[in-house]
Write a protein that binds this DNA or RNA. Sequence first.
DNA 1: GTAGTCATGTAAGAGGTTACATGATTAG
DNA 2: CTAATCATGTAACCTCTTACATGACTAC
Lengths: 218, 218
Amino acid sequence: MSLRHALLAVLTAKPMTGYDLVKYFDGSVAFVWSAPHSQIYPELRRMERDGLVEARVVPRGDRAEKRIYSISDAGFAELRTWLTTLAPYQGDRDPYRLRSAHFEMASYESARRQLLEHRRHYVRALHEWQQMIDDIEAARVSLLRARLAKRPAAEHEAIIAFRRFAFRGEAAKARMEIAWAEEGLELLDWLEEKQVPLWGEQGSPPSASQADDLTEQD
Amino acid sequence: MSLRHALLAVLTAKPMTGYDLVKYFDGSVAFVWSAPHSQIYPELRRMERDGLVEARVVPRGDRAEKRIYSISDAGFAELRTWLTTLAPYQGDRDPYRLRSAHFEMASYESARRQLLEHRRHYVRALHEWQQMIDDIEAARVSLLRARLAKRPAAEHEAIIAFRRFAFRGEAAKARMEIAWAEEGLELLDWLEEKQVPLWGEQGSPPSASQADDLTEQD
DNA sequence: GTAGTCATGTAAGAGGTTACATGATTAG
DNA sequence: CTAATCATGTAACCTCTTACATGACTAC
């Protein structure tokens, strides 16, 4: 149940509306966690029901209203429990790596397209993380400033350091994925130059040697 | 719907029972995809219903039976479509990174424990991937051999190369995560030596100004 | 007025986790 | 005979995605 904790963590900086949180978990700011509004609004209601956040209903213009959520003491306790509890490591699930392991059933063109997209995605991500790291170090992030303002100066260094540390991890991951995609693109060039055939090239049948047996058997 | 495609991909090597697939997606072999048996058995039934696999019911001993699944032509077609379709890149979700961004609300001890576990996990993973890469290169993997036997020799190089490529990606990720965890451990040492206080250190209250409220409440 | 952004929801369905459940076969 | 492994399910529950839906406010 990490969306809940991600929301609590953001709300420790300052009270926010559901809409603010939606933008946060949607924009480039959604650093290691993303969530659509259809998940955020109901979750906030459940958190309110469970006493982890408190909503203040504020008028907006004449007719409209908005709900400003702030974290409660119980919310702080929940967040701290989550943070200090060792998270178990289990199976991973990476659809891109899964695909790449079976590129011999695709075509050079589609494999290349996929890896180019992979690189494009992580180049973009890397720029964003790097920008984020710079902004954090310069305390240009308003949410960070709000957070710092709430805590004694002695803690500021740690708050900045951990935020930076997390983004550095994401940046390192992006760099790794870029290098991996480039290794793959080189591999594709090399194999294609050697004219190594792929199963997925031309409309070749599923099984070369047993093409006919298969159709009968199964 | 990637479990389905992961299953189809494995079945291209040779027909297997649900149990075989359960072990595959459970053991260390579950390289980039993991799934519990409670997900695999029903999915195989649905795939059979959809004509992507065919089951042959074989007696096992006197009373028992087992179902050996093999991929159908429609299954091959589905797999190829999936492989050649560009996968969109969307939001990530990394609970470990999320935690690490907020370690200032934990304690030095719990943060350290988490990062040690992170390193332990990826050191283990790295060993497994590296072993896997060696085994693949030496064609010591029986499933790989079964797969090669079905395909013309000209394609063997590509099949091995892509499998190896995928594992190399996982190995690189593991190395990156190990380095990141070590950076974090050094950061913790450095901050602790400087006696930078953490919010979560000692039973300190969530909000500096509202210290007393908490202890009563929870 | 109208487009953009602020603001908040519901609902169906897919995918995944955890627990409950059962029984046969095989090796010692 | 007993433990490990083979073999296969169901069910409740949670999380996430995608689509459907609505309406007020604000700047042009």
